[in-house]
C-alpha cells in the first residue's frame, strides 16, 4: 500500500454504502476501500470458523464415541488464564490505537508491543497445553476437532502477532503514520476478530464438556 494515499481510514468506516459523490475527475477513497474490503474479507473468513464450530457441535452431539479411551476431559485452568490474557490484549491494542490517534508515537509503540507480547504469551500457553495432552490429532473426531480448531485459531493469532510486528517496524519510517494508518487499523480489527473467535471457541471446547 502507498502511505501517501492513506487517509484516516476509521473515519470512512461509518458510511460504507453512501452514494459515491466524489470529485468527477479522478481518484477515489483508497483507504476507505481497503478497510471496506478487509471487513468483507473478515466476514467471509468468519464463515470458515463458523463451519468448524458447526462441525464440532455435530460431532459432539452425534459421535458414537466422543472422548478417546483414557481421556476424561480438558483441563480448564491454564486455558482460562490464556483467555484472560488474549481478551485483555484487545483493550491494550485499543489504547495503542488511541495513542496513535493522539500522535503519541512512543505511547503507541509501547502498548502495541505489549499487545504483541500478550499474543505471544497466548501462543506459548497454547503450545504448553498441547505438549501436556495425552491425545493426538488422529485420536478420533475429538482429537481431530480439538487440534483443528485450536490450531486454526492459533495460526490466526500467529498471523496477528506478525502483522503487529510489521506495523511496529513501519512506525519507525519517518512521517509514516502522520495521517493515520490503514495497516494499524486493519491489524487491530483483525486482533478483535481473533479474540471474539477465541471466546466462542473457549466456550464450545472448554466450558461445554
Amino acid at each position: 500500500m502507498n502511505p501517501a494515499e492513506v487517509d484516516q481510514s476509521l473515519n470512512t468506516l461509518g458510511a460504507p454504502s453512501q452514494p459515491p459523490a466524489r470529485e468527477a475527475t479522478h481518484g477515489h477513497d483508497d483507504a476507505g476501500n481497503r478497510m471496506f474490503g478487509f471487513i468483507v474479507f473478515l466476514l467471509s473468513e468468519s464463515v470458515i470458523f463458523f463451519s468448524f464450530f458447526v462441525g464440532y457441535i455435530v460431532y459432539k452431539t452425534s459421535a458414537p464415541e466422543w472422548l478417546p479411551a483414557g481421556v476424561t476431559g480438558l483441563e480448564i485452568r491454564e486455558p482460562a488464564i490464556n483467555t484472560v490474557v488474549l481478551v485483555s490484549s484487545s483493550f491494550v491494542i485499543y489504547v495503542a490505537e488511541r495513542f496513535l490517534h493522539d500522535k503519541n508515537i512512543w505511547g503507541f509503540r509501547g502498548f502495541w508491543l505489549l499487545t504483541a507480547l500478550m499474543g505471544s504469551y497466548f501462543l506459548y500457553g497454547q503450545a504448553v497445553e498441547w505438549r501436556g495432552l495425552s491425545f493426538g490429532l488422529t485420536d478420533g473426531v475429538f482429537g481431530g476437532t480439538f487440534y483443528l480448531l485450536t490450531g486454526f485459531h492459533g495460526l490466526h493469532v500467529l498471523t496477528g502477532v506478525l502483522l503487529q510486528l510489521i506495523m511496529l517496524g513501519r512506525s519507525f519510517l519517518p512521517g509514516n503514520y502522520d495521517k493515520g494508518e490503514f495497516g494499524v487499523a486493519a491489524t487491530s480489527l483483525f486482533w478483535h476478530f481473533v479474540d471474539v473467535i477465541w471466546i466462542i471457541l473457549f466456550v464450545l471446547i472448554y466450558v461445554w464438556q
Binding site: 460504507p16 454504502s17 452514494p19 459515491p20 459523490a21 466524489r22 468527477a24 477515489h28 477513497d29 476507505g32 476501500n33 471496506f36 474490503g37 468483507v40
Partner: peptide, 10 residues
C-alpha cells in the same frame, strides 16, 4: 463487492 459498493460514478 468493494468495487460495486464504493466505486460507482456520481
Amino acid at each position: 463487492v468493494t468495487t460495486i459498493a464504493r466505486m460507482r460514478a456520481p
